[in-house]
Nucleic acid binder design. Structure first.
Lengths: 215, 215
DNA sequence: TGTAATGTTTACCAGTCGGTCAAATTATCC
DNA sequence: GGATAATTTGACCGACTGGTAAACATTACA
């Protein structure tokens, strides 16, 4: 008898790698649009071009697919914040963090929506990740920002809310893309919206955080 | 025979008003968490304390409930932007717009999440509202902001992206509340997060938009 | 108070949901 | 090439989905 589940085998077949990849790719398509509850295995199977029982051969449950997807995407997603360098120049660090996050919103909107859907619905599947790895990373970087403020390199401000505001403004262009496009219309919405956003946000954050002369 | 659906009657009964109110209240609870696809009539019926067929007596379909809810909430939701006054002082107008939006995120998070869910999933039910009333209103206010910039009252900036950034930063505290709470932890997350956010955002936007001396 | 209109419920339907199972097919390796 | 393990499929299950039909209960109003 074969081992009942591919996931339990020690060595991963070439087929396993390919198919799991294909499934997660399809799952990202579906979960990122409809959220966990709103997505169905059949939809994912359709997109993947595989039969439903075949998906369930690689991932025992819908939850397992979702979990695997989250795990795979989370690390990459936090990369820009991780790259935030305490020894760098504050202004250019913030600038490049904004630019990187905006590039991710442009190039990986599905990943952004996956998390947005999940958090929006109360984060029932990623609470631990938020309170653990995410919080730890943010705490660390908040410390860096606080030190910069104390040293007079940037204006005094709450580092946590600064990070929140960079997250929200940049991810907005992935998560709420239809709204952005609807409001900008065809004339401004074309391809330039990310460059326009980058220009605006860099200006806002750099000027907003510049140290003010004592008045 | 009675008219088959209450919705078709000319005059609304007291009972109709009460029950439709109760249903929409429950629908807001459910739709705002799970989105349209992820929500079920049974869930709404449970929350409303009514039987499923009874809900369907007042709203023929799940879509009708959702539609009615959107219609009712949209007007209120745009109120703060509508209040944006061209004749006011730019700084205080922006400041009070931010404050108002933040108060709404605090006091009406379900409404915010209702729209967030909808837009996030491609806005299949509110595309017209986005391209119509919303775009028109934003176009108008963007004109106001542009005029302010031209008159040298605030720094030159893209008015659309300014509005987007105010939307995203403020609504973040409603839509991603679990994440905010998880990151801030218990020590900072308590009740003060909205005041802290207000302080930070006002500083960011006011200083960020202040006219810079020609260097 | 009677009666017609309004409101509510029980029972139900067809389609979809996540998931199982055993049989059939394919890849692997000696 | 054949045995064996890995992969794929169709048929199926019970629970749930949005929605209906009709009997039943309640209200409003002359």
């Amino acid at each position: 008898m074969a081992i009942p589940r591919a996931a339990k085998t020690q060595r991963r077949t070439r087929i396993q790698e390919e198919k799991e990849e294909k499934i997660l790719e399809a799952a990202l398509d579906v979960f990122s649009v409809s959220g966990f509850r709103g997505s169905t295995i059949d939809q994912i199977a359709d997109v993947a071009g595989m039969s439903k029982p075949n998906l369930l051969y690689y991932f025992r449950t819908k939850e397992a697919m979702h979990r695997a997807l989250i795990d795979r995407v989370l690390y990459t997603w936090l990369e820009p914040l991780r790259a935030f360098d305490a020894n760098g120049n504050p202004e250019s660090e913030i600038r490049s963090y904004i630019r990187r996050k905006l590039e991710m919103a442009r190039d990986f909107p599905r990943e952004s929506r996956l998390f947005a859907n999940e958090v929006l619905q109360g984060a029932p599947h990623i609470e631990d990740e938020l309170k653990g790895p995410l919080k730890d990373l943010v705490d660390e970087k908040a410390g860096v920002i606080k030190a910069w403020a104390k040293a007079g390199k940037i204006a005094k401000c709450d580092p946590y809310h600064l990070i929140f505001s960079i997250w929200s403004t940049t991810q907005h262009y992935a998560d709420f893309d239809v709204q952005v496009l609807a409001v900008l219309g065809q004339e401004h919405g074309g391809g330039g919206r990310f460059e326009d956003a980058a220009r605006f946000l860099e200006q806002l954050f750099i000027d907003g955080l510049r140290v003010k002369p004592a008045s």
